[in-house]
Design a protein around this nucleic acid. Structure first.
Lengths: 230, 230
DNA sequence: TGCACTTAACTTGTATACAAATCATGTTTT
DNA sequence: AAAACATGATTTGTATACAAGTTAAGTGCA
């Protein structure tokens, strides 16, 4: 008795992943009829999926015109990074107070796993699964596991931005180093250094991508994305 | 050229408001055919609306059984309050650093307006609009207005919880007092007192509702809501 | 050549018919 | 009487036909 799920869910997951992985790029057209042929279903379930994706902010449906992949909005991405800084700061701070040695070992295991993957030139996606695991452990221990899931589900735009970072970067030793420093701060209860480290860590994507946002990938972002850069 | 919007949006807004205002209460059945008759449209747009509401977490669609209003999950509400504490703490702290006298006057105006509404026994909803305004001003000034909108849109469960608080409470002088204290902290840059005040303010709903959650309104919450209360 | 209109081929929006699963009721059987 | 079965009403899921709007190509006219 697993799932009495209709066909909709599977199609939604497939398309969402293709969008987040940038296999379907911004402004690309998603014709309902094309999707019908591809998945072998009628327009009804396809329309449900598109409306779902539109609610996620990944697709824009323009009545009587067409549906297409949305651009990323950097002004929103910046605010979502601000949000993650705020939540993650409080989560890690509260986690530090707990002094849970078992959970700290879990964190260390994530970092060691990432080191192994880098050494063996493993798969990028696996590396980033341990990156997510590292952060989610602390959300769980502090008692707000739902917030981690919510952040993940909500930050669709940020996920695509992060994908760009993954595509471009080869050397991931800097992220391991940052996690190492975070772990050191946690183990030694250096509350005064926490916020700066989190800020540096979460700004990493912007720092690494740099100019590529306004050159190579300019067309992926909305027009107003880089207007008010101070 | 305002909106080429189909009929869906209007129906969605109406139903959403009725749910958030608890005119439609948890476990109540939403029959597609009934809604068709009520709004004078076919099942197609009604189904779109229900799926949208399901994505908001306000409606549960059980295939081949029926659709009904979801219960509130207090374990999630607590985590969302935690989230608001984290974000609001950082927003207000950054706002304090700015020392923007004009914006501070805006805050004062909100409090004065609330006082006037209470004195004249004005409409509850108006009072809470100024409550939202008070907080949104600081989000705007710090440069993260989107986050306020996102929090508002996302916390559907929390909105219903807040509605219970509004229904039950008559005297709102405590909220005015809390805003007054917050303003005092902001004006005098008392960074060390900020977090405690925010925590107290955002825990207000739980504090005021108290036992009513587990008695009068018990059936509005999911079964696991009050299992792990420490 | 250039402009204006028509028309046809798209797009998404809506209504309807039917399929599939569930549930409650009544009947039959034991 | 009680349990098993059958049946019909009700639910949501899907496919299809048609409506409405958009776009672009083409055609006719000046």
């Amino acid at each position: 008795m697993l799932k009495p799920t209709p066909a909709i869910d599977g199609i939604y997951e497939i398309l969402k992943e293709e969008i987040l992985d940038l296999l379907l790029i911004p402004e690309q057209i998603l014709s309902e009829n094309d999707l019908c042929k591809r998945f072998g279903v009628s327009r009804t379930p396809i329309r449900s999926v598109l409306q779902h994706l539109a609610q996620d902010g990944l697709v824009s449906i323009e009545p009587y015109k067409g549906s297409f992949i949305t651009k990323m909005d950097f002004t929103i991405i910046k605010q979502q990074i601000y949000q993650r800084k705020a939540i993650e700061y409080m989560v890690i701070r509260d986690f530090m107070k707990r002094k849970d040695l078992v959970a700290i070992e879990e964190l260390r295991f994530c970092i060691r796993s990432q080191e192994a993957i880098v050494k063996q030139h493993g798969i990028k996606e696996e590396f980033y699964e341990f990156d997510s695991k590292f952060h989610s452990i602390m959300f769980r221990e502090v008692g707000v596991p739902f917030l981690w899931d919510q952040i993940q589900a909500l930050e669709c735009n940020y996920s695509r931005f992060r994908k760009l970072d993954i595509i471009e970067q080869e050397n991931r030793s800097d992220i391991i180093e940052e996690h190492d420093k975070l772990l050191h701060i946690i183990e030694n209860h250096q509350f005064d250094q926490l916020e700066d480290m989190i800020t540096y860590h979460l700004d990493g994507g912007i720092r690494r991508l740099g100019d590529k946002m306004t050159t190579k990938y300019l067309t992926f972002f909305t027009d107003n994305s880089f207007q008010d850069i101070q």
